[in-house]
């Protein structure tokens, strides 16, 4: 009798599994944490897909791509969510991804051309300072000042790499000199965003590299308007976060449905106050209160994905040389 119940249980369980297909989405850790967009998005998507949405977290964006390359075609992943413009070319070259049919008007400051990678949010890198501090107008003024900044290491952190590309996009050939001049302003370089931001809040430096949207967190979640982003005249480098379908997915329709869902209000309205980035398609009722006063850069900088790889290696060498003197 026991065996029968057991057998029935197994049978029912497999029967159930066959009815609710499972969509596996690989993403970075902060997306799935209870403060990130993950939990709300899982609920909303499951309500309309009749499927089981499973988020799997793998460190940060760069680790995500490394993980997928390790797994290759054997991967369980159907969708990857959380690569960015700096990783796109390398991701494209891996041949792991396949184009989607998503076709919408994005609210991005730049034209979007890729049909493999679907942008779901974006932001500008910026230095955050306390109210009352007069920020420099650009990198050159920063380098001349005795302001102290905290940055992240481009080899281990997304914003760190963003800053590298920012200086490269703004100054090209002169980037190495800019870094050499900035060297005495840099208090330290941290492994990730959290360490740098934590040190900034503890008063270790005048400014920290983060996003123009960071003050929105303090305004909305903490009712604190003392944090501001410094607007730089060179323009600000952008980060666009993207998702893509895996070619080896065993749920291609569901994966496509998820990417389509990503650009709807149900997904996009969750982004601003959980991921603290701009949604890639502004939802029907606009941006939440607290976003309206944020710095809007005069110019948006973004290297085309194809140029990133070469620029990245050159910029990293310049950075290492300038800061290792």
């Amino acid at each position: 009798m026991k065996y029968l119940t057991f057998a029935a249980g197994v049978f029912c369980a497999t029967g159930l599994a066959a009815q609710t297909p499972e969509l596996t989405v690989y993403t970075y850790d902060s997306f799935v944490s209870e403060w990130g967009p993950g939990p709300q998005i899982e609920k909303a998507f499951e309500a309309e897909c009749g499927c089981d949405l499973k988020f799997v977290s793998a460190g940060d964006g760069a680790s995500l791509l490394a993980r997928l390359k390790l797994e290759g075609a054997r991967s369980d992943a159907d969708v990857v969510l959380g690569l960015d413009t700096n990783l796109m070319a390398s991701a494209e070259d891996s041949g792991l991804f396949t184009p989607s049919e998503v076709d919408v008007e994005y609210d991005l400051p730049v034209a979007w051309e890729s049909d493999t990678f679907v942008p779901y949010d974006w932001g500008y890198f910026a230095f955050i300072h306390n109210k009352g501090v007069t920020p420099p107008q650009d990198f050159l003024e920063l380098a001349k000042s005795d302001m102290k900044i905290l940055i992240q290491d481009p080899r281990s952190s997304t914003p760190g790499l963003g800053l590298l590309m920012w200086v490269k996009a703004a100054y090209g050939e002169d980037a190495a000199q800019v870094w050499a001049d900035l060297a005495d302003n840099i208090v330290t370089v941290t492994k990730g965003w959290s360490e740098a931001y934590g040190l900034f809040l503890d008063g270790e430096a005048d400014m920290v590299l983060s996003y123009t949207t960071s003050p929105a967190y303090h305004i909305i979640a903490e009712d604190d308007d003392t944090k501001e982003a410094a607007a730089f005249d060179e323009g600000h480098y952008m980060q666009v976060e993207v998702a893509a379908k895996l070619a080896a997915s065993d749920q291609p329709e569901l994966a496509e449905q998820f990417l389509q869902f990503m650009v709807t209000d149900a997904f996009q309205s969750v982004i601003p106050t959980t991921n603290w980035m701009y949604p890639s398609v502004i939802p029907g009722d606009g941006l939440p209160e607290g976003f309206e006063g944020l710095v809007e850069p005069r110019k948006s900088l973004l290297l085309p994905p194809a140029e990133v790889q070469a620029a990245r290696d050159e910029a990293l060498n310049e950075w290492l040389t300038a800061l290792s003197q």
Binding site: D153, R155, S156, A183, V187, T190, K191, E195, L323, S324
Partner: peptide, 18 residues
């Protein structure tokens, strides 16, 4: 890794682990 980098003040303090 993280300790050496943060307290080391920059890429001079690059360790094998980094």
């Amino acid at each position: 890794f993280a300790v050496a980098l943060t307290l080391g003040g920059g890429p001079r303090a690059t360790t094998i682990e980094l």
